[in-house]
Amino acid sequence: MIPLKCTDEVIEYMHEYLDNDISKENEQKLRQALQDCEDCRNYFNELKKAIAFVQSTSHIEAPSNFTASVMAKLPKEKKKVSVNRWLKHHPFLTAVSLFLVLMSGVLFSSWNTDHQFAFSKQPELVVENDTVIVPEGKVVTGDIVVRNGNIKIEGQVDGNVTVINGDQFLAAAGEVTGDIEEIDQVFEWLWYQVKDTFTQMKNMIMKNKE
């Protein structure tokens, strides 16, 4: 058998082999050629060496800030989407903030509608402009609450006095058996509302028990 020389044909077989794309028949011919011809062997080794060299180049990694740089270069997304995503990722916070928004809405609306002068109806009280007067020598039994006005106590009050958005003047002769409280700030007012609600609930529960 005549040995195959380093012909184009054999070189073509080498490439087919390197592509994993060689027929049994051609592979046999290639093996024969490599066995018979030193030039073919060298040529084939050089090809394989070149591939090995290319493959040996160490795998390099992208610079550390790569992802951040890409994200910074992207066109801005629509605001709506980022809000939706935040809401989706924080369901508890969403519920809490929704609750707070609604609650504060309710409280503030009642704060705002509460701006007219008002006071607890008691038979002995006298009113001058926006000042509620407990007249000298009179005794008021029960609590007094004055909203958006002042109170002047010259007589005696058998109970608590609460002034919301106003001042209280206690005359030397005046007397209050309970507590006197002035509420001016929104937060104090809120606290008062909360306390008031709880007291009312407590009273209701007590009454129910009785």
């Binding site: 795998h59 992207l74 709506k80 989407v81």
Partner: peptide, 16 residues
């Protein structure tokens, strides 16, 4: 859908 942050993970996977 417009969620830009989802793209970050894609970049991480293929950047190298």
């Amino acid at each position: 859908k417009g969620d830009q942050s989802a793209y970050e993970e894609i970049v991480e996977i293929y950047k190298d």
